[in-house]
Amino acid sequence: MYRLSLCALLLLAAVAPAQSLSTVNFGEVVRGSKPELDDLKGRVVVIEFWGIH
């Protein structure tokens, strides 16, 4: 049973996509222009969650 669970976990880890920029939902633009994945290719991208309040 333990072996089965371990195999299932390993399989899940292999199948689940790694977190990457291509999975990011950019939402709506408030200021500036919407980032395009092609333009961001080859760049280090920093996304910050923030709030005005």
Binding site: D39, G42, V45, V46, I47
Partner: peptide, 13 residues
């Protein structure tokens, strides 16, 4: 020098 910055506003406003 290759850094792209993006701000995600996540509060209700």
């Amino acid at each position: 020098f290759g850094l792209a910055m993006i701000g995600f506003h996540v509060q209700d406003a």
